[in-house]
Design a protein around this nucleic acid. Structure first.
Lengths: 248, 248
DNA sequence: ATCAGTTAATTGGTAATACCAATTAACTAT
DNA sequence: ATAGTTAATTGGTATTACCAATTAACTGAT
């Protein structure tokens, strides 16, 4: 590939990538057909196919023979295909992610308390309010997304770009796999109330610029999430067992 | 894509991916031409192109017009293209990575001390010996790779798969960009000697199954690496300034 | 009007062929 | 041995044709 003349296929991929990132085609949308895209973009169909291949390979699109091409994600998936597959098939790896979050978010909260600008702080506040506003939504994934946005706003306040990327990838991993009991965090009052208080404490520590308090708040929060998920898993397993007992 | 009949292009990409992972084509190797691959694999050239596109998009291969296709990496790059580009163009983001390693490797060392099997411990020992054996090699990247292998062996001992993946991606990120003064860590005796002692202390803490000692060893080591790189950067900047002064 | 079955159209996947621009290899002259 | 020229090779793009799978449209029966 010459540096003086960009590949048409690459240009098409970048153009489509920008449309995806901008939300022009929301998740699940069916894209125009290859022949149509080729005509609209004034390139040949093989060039469109090669561009689509790039985006399919990054986990952003999915093609179905005779059925069209669909949006899977507006951003490249940050983890390799085998890990994503493994994660989808083995939900217990959620606890691996929680272990990592425990280490990273304590650290992020520390740096956010030290480094956040006024804009960062405002964004954290807005995200916290958004979490409260979206509580009780029929679609629990809305709450999960608001929760992720809140945490990512804190990571943004740490001003460590690589950390932000890693955390985004971890949240993508959680959201792109089937959310195994994750919704229960938001729908059980015995979990949501303390959860919400912990979010508030974390936010207040960061806004007050108290790094050690922020770290502790983050670590306690993650420990609580881990314990709650384990307890929810146990409850669900018990329910399943008793349902099986009834059906005999 | 039907689940009953895999795409030819995907099969070719997987086949090539296995050849890459097995080391059949080492880093930098030029692959056979597209026409040749198409003949060898009994598929059409467009199918080969689509397969190559998948691997190019994952950062594993690079194509040059008229010049062939080359191996960039034997594994998919775990980070998205924009971050990789940004990292290559702005070496100061190394310090973002070091901040993250500080958090993650302290954690990994803790769990490795708790969870390592005898096999894990043996692998850690072998990697440590390998680091000593390769010291002074004319190619400092050999030492960087041995260093990475040692740290990854410890992460493997933590038995957290997602953490292993994240750490691999971070090391790939460091090694796939121009190694800005990284070689100086191994070539300056005032740095290498304490570095080697710290590696030994970290290994011994993990092997002895002492989690708190292991965490401290890891964190102190990463702090030393960070300080050393900053000091080396300052030395190099001073040298550059005095060279500029002489050339006037 | 609704539903089921059939047919036609559309879609992504594959292949063959041709040509172009860039690079590499081979050849020739000094 | 080196420099310049030519030929061959390479990746990139385009056109055309065909196939398998899916979707849409149409028709007939209830």
């Amino acid at each position: 590939m010459s540096t003086t003349k960009p590949r048409k296929a690459t240009q098409v991929a970048e153009h489509l990538g920008r449309l995806l990132a901008s939300g022009h085609w929301p998740l699940g949308t069916r894209l125009p057909a290859e022949r149509q895209l080729a005509e609209q973009l004034a390139v040949s169909r093989p060039s469109v196919r090669e561009a689509l291949q790039q985006l399919i390979s990054k986990g952003m699109l999915e093609s179905r023979v005779g059925g069209g091409t669909y949006v899977l994600s507006s951003k490249p998936i940050g983890f390799s295909d085998p890990l994503l597959t493994l994660f989808r098939e083995n939900p217990e790896y959620r606890f691996d992610v929680l272990e990592i979050r425990h280490a990273l978010e304590g650290n992020a909260a520390w740096y956010a308390a030290l480094r956040s600008t006024d804009e960062d702080k405002e964004r954290i506040r807005v995200c916290f309010e958004q979490m409260l506003a979206v509580h009780g939504d029929p679609d629990p994934m809305q709450e999960a997304r608001a929760d992720a946005s809140f945490h990512l706003a804190i990571v943004e306040g740490s001003h460590n770009l690589v950390l932000l990327h890693v955390m985004r990838s971890l949240f993508d991993l959680l959201q792109n796999s089937i959310s195994h009991n994750l919704d229960k965090l938001y729908t059980q009052p015995r979990v949501f109330e303390p959860l919400s208080q912990q979010h508030r404490e974390l936010m207040e520590a960061v806004l007050a610029g108290e790094p050690e308090r922020a770290r502790q708040a983050a670590e306690q929060h993650l420990a609580f999430v881990e314990d709650s998920l384990k307890s929810i898993d146990a409850d669900e397993a018990r329910k399943l067992r008793s349902l099986r007992h009834l059906s005999r």
